[in-house]
């Protein structure tokens, strides 16, 4: 049960997305997110969706995995969609008017595109980051990207070391939680029944030993690290070298082009496409 929790959703592989430098993917994800929020017309959204589909194809991650990634946010999506549908006030006549409920065309459109936006956001960023980048290279990439901040006194290295250690110890502590739970269960502890308050209280005998042991581990680890000559204030070298290759520059160029495309398309007047009904629909500003 509890050991089923996996951190991140990294799927090892050898696709182009897997091989890219983590910094490229981090920057690409930023560009992609900006593009999502710059998209204003159905045509721009079509472009975004197309681009996301290309990312999925390139990553070679199965569609079922991706759908599983969306599942946890479905309720939030439904809730916000309903809010948008019922709360948005449109300019024209409401489509449905019943008691105090008034549904406008704008509300429905907004709900549809908001949902699309969130889904694209989740799929796109997980495609680029969590699914195709191992936690350790993600940490390395973040440290490298943030390293200019070290010059103004931000302890970038300390944060990345803390992140690495956290990632390292999550499985160990999960395993330990499982052991403690079993130990308490064997003495008759009941975690599954009773009121919410009762169940929360039942967690205390798990949390206390877990914390005690985590502190003990922290101390032992600190001593072990010191014995291996770790010093916060001293410059360290690294085994793994992040190298920007041609493909990284190319990828960033494609992402930048894509962002520009989305912005331009979002501002394009319908007349440019001939001004027909379809053109006006595609360029309808949401």
């Amino acid at each position: 049960m509890i050991s089923d929790i996996t951190l991140g959703q990294f799927f090892p592989g050898f696709s182009l997305l897997h091989k890219l430098d983590p910094r490229t993917k981090l920057l690409g994800a930023i560009l992609f997110i900006v593009a999502i929020f710059m998209a204003k017309t159905p045509l721009a959204f079509a472009l975004l969706t197309l681009f996301t589909l290309v990312l999925i194809l390139v990553s070679r991650i199965s569609v079922s995995v991706i759908l599983r990634g969306i599942r946890p946010v479905i309720y939030i999506l439904i809730f916000t969609s309903l809010l948008n549908i019922f709360m948005t006030k449109g300019a024209g006549e409401p489509l449905v008017a019943f008691w105090i409920v008034k549904i406008y065309k704008e509300g429905i459109i907004r709900a549809i595109f908001m949902t699309l936006r969130v889904i694209l956001l989740i799929v796109g960023s997980s495609m680029l980051l969590t699914y195709t980048t191992s936690p350790i290279s993600l940490t390395d990439g973040l440290e490298s990207l943030l390293s200019p901040l070290a010059r103004i006194g931000v302890p970038v290295h300390i944060f990345s070391m803390m992140m690495t250690i956290a990632l390292r110890f999550i499985p160990t502590l999960v395993e330990e939680t499982d052991k403690i739970m079993n130990a308490q269960k064997s003495r008759g502890a009941d975690f599954a029944s009773g009121s919410l308050v009762r169940r929360a209280k039942a967690l205390i005998p798990i949390l206390v030993p877990l914390f005690v042991s985590a502190f003990k581990r922290a101390e032992e680890l600190a001593v072990a690290m010191e014995c291996r000559c770790y010093r916060v204030d001293k410059k360290r070298t690294k085994l793994a070298k992040l190298t920007f290759r041609a493909r990284d520059f190319l990828t960033l160029f494609v992402f930048a082009l894509f962002l520009t495309g989305v912005i331009l398309v979002s501002r394009m007047p319908a007349s440019l496409l001939g001004g027909s009904f379809v053109a006006r629909l595609l360029c309808y500003r949401i």
Partner: peptide, 14 residues
């Protein structure tokens, strides 16, 4: 160098 008792508490990286 020193190798400690608990193997878990001396490994740093993932």
């Amino acid at each position: 160098g020193m190798v400690f008792q608990n193997p878990d508490n001396q490994l740093v990286a993932t």
